[in-house]
Amino acid sequence: MDTYAWMVRFAELVSADAERLTRLDSAIGDGDHGSNLDRGMRAAAEALSADLPPGKVLMTAGRTLVSKTGGASGPLYGTALRRAGKALGDASEVGAVELGAALRAALEGVQELGKAEEGDKTMVDALAPAVTAYEAAAGEGLAAAARAALDAAEKGAEATVPLQARKGRASYLGPRSVGHQDPGAASTVLLFRALAETAASS
């Protein structure tokens, strides 16, 4: 698994979709999620190099996100990637099983920090089912597992639409948060799309 290619692709997808993410955030937040994550991932992609070990790539991306993003998504995405990188350790090769453990660590990091449960209408609603689906499909190999994770993330993000937010800025809207997709869940889909594309081409 080429974590460098994954991160670079994630940065590209975020950049291409930044306006949509910001629009989602305007509806139930403060209209900056796209520019936040784009600023962070641009910096991360710049800080990375292809010759770093896979775990180090994710840790560097995570640290850069924490340093450059701001907002809620900076610490949350940053922690997710740092934890994932840490889980990979110094390994020079990453297989389907190792990546599964890394994704699980990422989810745990996000929940530890943000205290969100599934159903709170946050990125966790895309991340948690994606990790579970990945683990379930890990036996079929990296590409299949990543594909399953993307499907689950997409469904999870879609499923945030009817929810009332209990965490993040959207929670201030109370019942008015219903009917809109959570921007962080939407960007999490991009993380898994990047993963699926990278896994498929490797």
């Binding site: 209209g31 900056d32 520019s35 936040n36 924490v66 340093s67 993003t69 701001g70 907002g71 809620a72």
Partner: peptide, 11 residues
């Protein structure tokens, strides 16, 4: 000061 309407970063 963070970016407009965006929390500052830890650094």
């Amino acid at each position: 000061p963070g970016e407009v309407f965006t929390s500052p970063v830890p650094d």
